[in-house]
Design a protein around this nucleic acid. Sequence first.
DNA 1: TCTGGGGTCCTAGGACCC
DNA 2: TCTGGGGTCCTAGGACCC
Length: 428
Amino acid sequence: MPVTLTTKRCFALVDCNNFYASCERLFRPDLKQKPLVVLSNNDGCIIARCALAKQLSIPMGAPFHQMKALLKQHQVAVFSSNYALYGDLSNRVMQTLEQLAPKVEIYSIDEAFLELSGLDFCQNLTDFGQQVRSTIYQQLGLPVCVGIAPSKTLAKLANYAAKKYPQFEGVLDLTEPHKRLHILARTPVQEVWGVGRKLAERLQAMNIDTALQLARACPQQIRKKFSVVLARTVNELNGIACLTLDEVQEPKQQIISSRSFGQRVKAKAEMQQAITLYISRAAEKLRAQHSLARQLSVFIRSSRFEQKSRFFGDQASLELESPSNDSRVLQQAAMQLLDRIWRDGPAYAKAGVVLSDLCAVQGLQNSLFTPPPSERSQRLMATIDQLNQKHRGSVFIARQGRDGNWQMQQQFLSPAYTTRWDQLPEVC
DNA sequence: TCTGGGGTCCTAGGACCC
DNA sequence: TCTGGGGTCCTAGGACCC
């Protein structure tokens, strides 16, 4: 077997195929030969499709209600999204990857970059990619594809091609420049990481339609006409690594909790319940990353799709006297904000809260000017988090109430197979 | 009836100062 | 009274990602 000494930068992108759909299918072997889709929160849109469903031309992001007839006609299995399940399986995929490569950056719930630079693998890179694929499939039953290249942007593109063209068998190594031309020339510019719909339109107006044409553009001109970001993309497409592997997950700078309602909200008391729930969720996330928030916003809005009535939306923010992660403090502040923006009349479709201007609990403990949150508050919150971790929703602020009509619709929710003992799959 | 949620980064423009 | 330019900081909004 040839030995590849990678002295240059080398990245692999591992991406799970149709992740949510694959997760659902894992526990339903009876659906192996059947098309399957997963819906967004509130069963609003289709956000994941298995290969068979894709063949039926069910578009990504299509509103569920518009697709119902087609789904029924082809007997497509439908699932509400089950983030407890996907999150748990994602963790297992990442743990497996960490055993296979020394440096791993968890990029999203279903993707990770591996850095292979400077490693003298006793195998070529395609074989390494196949090993990743087979290990994850054997251990977890989830299919993945692997793209390998000297920059992250090219690794993304290699992954895209590994998925698209069956002859690569799920792994594509683009470290050799001459292998790239062919692929870049066949990849539409919109498939390049960092090029969305708007940029693609502007690029196409300049006769840049493919990834290869973008790679051959002048970075300085792109910088001038577009942005530093796109200029960096041009360099990355030429194999010049501008992005590095970020192994450590930085704490979030902003935490959002928002949701569309299962049914329109008209009463203020219901809105108060919803906002209280969202605040609790956001505060939980805040504490999980050991942060405090200085700023808080609340927003409410009616539906943009409503024909009969005019759209209404408003938001308000405030700065806390001292940074906090205490659900009670944040909840009170949120209620004040809601009082400011609430209007009787509109049928509200969505609301949310945003925590921002975050800082670390640690840093504040040594500050002379801002008092740190009290021991008592920290201990109480830690206890609540522990209880809720064991049993979701066991402790909550009374204002939140139980079972409002506004709560999320999840008509097709699968059991929490992997995270709840009472919902373990049964083998008959 | 029914159209997701949660993030990041960059830029443009205004306010303000020297 | 008239004139100028450069710098910083902040915010809102846009574009992108999954």
